[in-house]
Write a protein that binds this DNA or RNA. Structure first.
Lengths: 348, 348
DNA sequence: TTGTAAGCGTTATCAT
DNA sequence: ATGATAACGCTTACAA
């Protein structure tokens, strides 16, 4: 096993190939004003000495970074967010695949607190990344607005559109309102009358949309709105567990629960099992997201599927386009969702 | 909303603060040969104009990249690997958290084929990253060996140690052999005599260790080795499904299966349910990894837990140390595993 | 088609 | 303690 010292630069290659540095650069960058003959010579030298131009030198000389940031913000837990919430995992996967396809690399950061936000900003300011995607942040998050204000390229997921705070950003939302409306309507059509809702934190735009959709479906069905039937969680399993207990204390008669995400539904399953309440015989449960475990639960969880993979590819493609075109217009997507009917809801 | 143009560089800050570029650099890098007074002046200017040094310029001038690569190799599927295998997700999460804690960022790539390996190498060669972690690759993967030979800093998971191919690398393994031995012994102690094994692809070092551990436990118990009881999968759900069907065709009398990973166990569950065979009443099943869904399965899957989080932190800490010290010695870890007893194995 | 030279924004080595 | 100045390795006018 021979140890190769890899310290050659463009000048070395130039000397070896008997051309100038600029010609090497032209070959490396595939310019067409180079004779086939010259190109061959240079290519051979590059090949032979395994020459790869340094990214930092290329960037300093004017090329854009081929790295994109993926920022997963979760200010609830201090650690291991990606594990904690299997919601993020498919999105990350989609982002990585889509970016790699296009020759970009993904740098991932988990943001738990203020100082993480500062580090994230620095990646834009010091030009490590050419753009970034934020998922999981509060509506109108200040730090993200700062970055957009400074004209960096960013896509934000699940944000209110139409406010001029985000007038230079790419917004990609799932149809929380529509999904919630459909889920609630589905329960109503199954004959349920006392339908509860375990909501998310209202700082999240999705939580607001889901609550609205739930209320509208009730209203359209002519049901009175009972505020006792709505209790707030924060998208964690534990909060779902607590919420359902609180709910059942005040509402002995509820027959169905629309839970704002599957992770909280996991907590609902746990609490109900503990209390000896059967799903769906005693209480029907419908979730949101369709995370991986949902189909393995017994009874399998009926839920509203969010196409994280599609959202990922839309995010990345728009981001790359904005970077390539050096454009800064605003775009807004609202991705439809689907009800996945499994076993956790019963007809009354 | 005012648009800030952020084009200032160190010279600008120097002029504003009334000092030289070098002094700005000294302040930025926290050198101590600067008067408090001067430092203050510079800091104020930096603060006011929101100056952040460009990473590419710093690197070109000699600083090391604060980016580490995480390479998830999966040559089986062409897409969305991270989603496909929930095995990788907690590891990735641990890697990101641990690196972020230490001021490093993680750039993730999924490697599906040869050309992806080339891109991965380039990240080392062009100095985008200061080191990298490989997970999921075959034993003695050529491309990884190339990188190690060229003296870049790398940690490889689940690799054979002691071969001089990897004499300059950090190897982090889980105790596949010990875990397989313990799992098989557990089944034996439960009274099982006809114990099958659904193995992984033998190009993976873990698969080899698990097969050995299984055989040794059988041997120590004085059981004859029946090659019919061993069938190969490739760690995917589908392969587990196929394997168990093949197994049951040739062995009507088997009472327990040791499956080399939980993902294949998912396939086993599916196939057995389809065939009307009850777990654990008819057949006991034990898996490996303890992926997230395992505890939600009904019956909950008894399995061997691999501490991916611990392996992640060991990997990153050793990698960063090697980078900081510019050292290139080899290290080898063998992380213990634990049996998690749930509901899928029955005493005979 | 090719070469020369300026510039990108830092850090590091000298002087002072 | 601070300031000039020379790298670092590339791209890109501009010249030839």
């Amino acid at each position: 096993v021979v140890t190769l010292k890899r310290e050659l630069n463009a000048s070395d290659i130039a000397r070896i190939a008997g051309v100038s540095r600029s010609t090497v650069s032209r070959v490396v960058n595939n310019y067409d004003n180079v004779t086939e003959e010259t190109r061959e010579k240079v290519l051979k030298a590059i090949e032979k000495y395994n020459y790869v131009p340094r990214a930092s030198a290329q960037m300093l000389a004017g090329k854009k970074s081929k790295i994109l940031g993926l920022f997963i913000v979760d200010t609830k837990s201090e650690n291991y967010t990606v594990t904690t919430s299997s919601y993020f995992s498919p999105f990350m996967s989609g982002v990585i695949d889509e970016a790699n396809k296009k020759g970009y690399k993904i740098l991932t950061m988990v943001i738990n607190n203020e100082s993480d936000f500062i580090s994230a900003k620095e990646l834009f300011y010091n030009r490590t990344i050419s753009g970034g995607v934020f998922i999981g942040c509060n509506n109108n998050e200040k730090h993200v607005m700062d970055i957009i204000r400074d004209e960096y390229k960013v896509v934000v997921l699940e944000q209110e559109s139409g406010t001029n705070h985000f007038n230079k950003a790419i917004i990609v939302n799932s149809d929380s309102y529509g999904g919630a409306y459909a889920a609630t309507k589905y329960l109503i059509e199954l004959g349920h009358k006392r339908i509860a809702h375990i909501a998310g934190d209202e700082r999240h735009w999705t939580a607001i949309g889901k609550l609205k959709g739930y209320k509208k479906a009730l209203e359209d069905a002519g049901f009175p709105l009972d505020e006792d039937l709505v209790v707030k969680g924060n998208y964690t399993l534990e909060s779902g567990l607590r919420a359902v207990k609180e709910l059942l204390q005040n509402n002995k008669d509820l027959t169905a629960i629309f839970v704002a995400n599957d992770t909280m539904a996991l907590g609902v399953y746990e609490a109900l099992e503990e209390m000896g309440i059967k799903i769906p015989d005693d209480i029907s449960v419908i979730g949101f997201d369709d995370i991986e475990v949902s189909k393995y639960l017994r009874p399998a969880l009926t839920t509203v599927k969010v196409s994280l993979l599609k959202m990922a590819s839309i995010s990345i493609n728009n981001l790359i386009q904005a970077i390539d075109e050096e454009s800064n217009y605003s775009v807004y997507y609202n991705i439809p969702v689907d009800i996945i009917i499994r076993e956790s809801c019963k007809k009354l």
